[in-house]
Design a protein around this nucleic acid. Structure first.
Lengths: 246, 246
DNA sequence: TGCGTTTCTTAGGAGATTCACAGGTTGCGG
DNA sequence: CCGCAACCTGTGAATCTCCTAAGAAACGCA
C-alpha cells in the first residue's frame, strides 16, 4: 500500500497500514545514526544493532520487513549472521553493506536470492532506493506500488533506470540519475544544495559544493534542452522540479 | 492541527491541542534569549539549555517536539549531543545552528534525515520558518497544516517558494520573500520597522533602518502594481498587509 | 593495458541582489 | 499655509550567487 502525504511524498506501507520496519546493523555508530535518520525520514520504523549477536536478538522480536547488514561485524562473520537471520526470518530481504574492495563474487552469489548490496561509502539516495526496491519486491508492501516516478511529461523508472521526456529516451549517468530521482521524489519543493549533497553524494564526499550546480547544469542540458524548463533555480534557496505546464 | 488566534495568526498545535514544545540549546545567553522570545511569540512552549549536558537532561523530561541546537557547545561536541538526543528522542527533528564558515565540513549529513540548519548570524524569520517546516514534516503537528499562506488573492507557498497574486506568478528575491512571509503571517496587524528589521534581517545587521522602506517599496512594485493595494503604511507605526477587498 | 566515460576541480564571467545615499513626496501639527 | 518628520524611490556600486567551459583524475570495461 502507498499513501501520499500532504507534502506529496509517497510512503511505503505494509498491507495492514502499519509502517515498514527496518533493522540496521553496522558497528560504526555514525553509520547507524546516519542510516536511521534517513530511513526514519522515509516514514519507516527503525531499530539498529552494532553486532551480529544484537542483530539476531533484535530481529527475533522486532520482526523487520527488511535488514541493512554490514558484512564486516566485530563479533561474527557476515555469512554467519546472515544464516542465523535467515533461520529467524526466512523471507526477509537483506541489503548488504560492503567495502568497495570486498570480494565481489561472493556478494554476487548472495544477491541471487533477491537480496541486494551497496558499497561503502554509499549515498543515502542509493540505500533508500535499493531498500524500497527490496521491500516492494518482497511483497511486504503492496505490490501495486510501482517504481515509476512521473513529473509532467518526465518519467523515471527506478527499476530499469530509464528516463524519458515526452517519449524521448534520455541517457543519464549514475549521479545524474540519482540527482533527478531525488528531485522527482520531491516535486515542487525547493531543495537546498546542502540537502542535495547530503542525500545524493556519498557521506564521505569532501569536495566543493558546486558539484551540485554542475550536475544541475548537466541535467538541464539533457532534460530541459530546447523544451519548457522543468528544473528551476530559487536563488539563495536551492532548486526544484515541477511540470513544465504550471 | 492549526488554529487561528483572535489576532488572525495561525498557530501550529500538536494533535492533542497542546502547544508545540521546542528546546533551544546555545551557550550564548543572548542567543537563547533572542530565540526563546521569538519562538514564544509563535505560541510555542520553550525551554533552553546552555550546554550539552543540560540539553540531554532537559530533553529527557521536557520531551520537546523540536530542538534548536548550536553545534558549538562548551562541554561536548555537537555530534555527540545529537547522538544522545537521538537516544532520548529518536524522532525529534533538529535545527542546527552553525558558524558561516563551518558549513562545508561539519554539516555533511545533517540534513539527510530531514533535519535542517541555519548559519549564524541568522534572521529570526528564517529560524522560525525552518522550525515550522521541520515540525510540520515530522508529524508532531497535524498533517493538515500546509505550507501555503493566503491573504486575499495573494498566495505564498513556503515549500516551493512561489508567490502569486490573482493567479499571476510573482518572482521575489530571498529578502523580499522573507519580508512578505512575515507580513502574511501577521495579516491585518501593524508591524513596526523595528519589528520587521529584527525579524527579517540577521541579528547582526548594522545597516540603515530604511532598508525596510526600500524593501516594502520593492514588494509594492511587485505585488500591488496596478492593483488594489494590499500593503498599507500606518504613518508613525509601521506597515500591515490585508486583503484588498476590505 | 588502453580507451571511452564519468566525476570533480578550477576559474572566469554574467547577472541578480543587497544596500547606501540622496533628493523628492506626503501627511500632520501648529 | 508652513515646516518638519516620516516615508518613498531612483541610481549606482559592491557583493554574492549561479552557470558553464575546460581539463585533470578516477573509473570501468574490453
Amino acid at each position: 500500500m502507498t499513501t501520499t502525504s500532504p507534502q506529496g511524498r509517497t510512503e511505503l506501507l505494509r498491507p495492514d497500514g502499519s509502517p515498514v520496519r527496518v533493522l540496521v546493523v553496522d558497528d560504526e555508530m555514525s553509520i547507524t545514526e546516519l542510516l536511521s535518520m534517513a530511513l526514519r525520514y522515509e516514514g519507516w520504523q527503525i531499530r539498529s544493532a552494532g553486532d551480529g549477536t544484537g542483530a539476531i536478538q533484535t530481529a527475533r522480536d522486532f520482526r523487520p520487513d527488511a535488514v541493512v547488514l554490514d558484512m564486516m561485524l566485530p563479533d561474527m562473520d557476515g555469512l554467519t549472521v546472515l544464516g542465523r537471520l535467515r533461520r529467524e526470518l526466512p523471507d526477509v530481504p537483506v541489503l548488504f553493506l560492503t567495502a568497495k574492495d570486498a570480494v565481489e563474487d561472493r556478494i554476487a552469489g548472495l544477491t541471487a536470492g533477491g537480496d541486494d548490496y551497496v558499497t561503502k561509502p554509499f549515498s543515502l539516495e542509493e540505500v533508500v532506493a535499493r531498500l524500497r526496491g527490496l521491500i516492494r519486491r518482497s511483497g511486504a508492501a503492496d505490490r501495486r506500488s510501482d517504481s515509476v516516478l512521473v513529473v509532467g511529461d518526465l518519467t523515471l523508472d527506478e527499476d530499469s533506470h530509464e528516463v524519458s521526456r515526452a517519449g524521448d529516451n534520455i541517457h543519464l549517468t549514475a549521479t545524474e540519475f540519482e540527482l533527478l530521482r531525488f528531485l522527482m521524489r520531491n516535486p515542487r519543493r525547493v531543495l537546498s544544495k546542502a540537502q542535495i549533497l547530503d542525500r545524493v553524494w556519498s557521506y564521505d564526499f569532501g569536495g566543493q559544493a558546486n558539484v551540485v550546480e554542475l550536475y544541475i547544469s548537466y541535467l538541464r542540458r539533457k532534460i530541459d534542452a530546447g523544451r519548457e524548463p522543468m528544473i528551476h533555480t530559487r536563488r539563495g534557496a536551492g532548486y526544484l522540479i515541477k511540470p513544465a505546464a504550471s
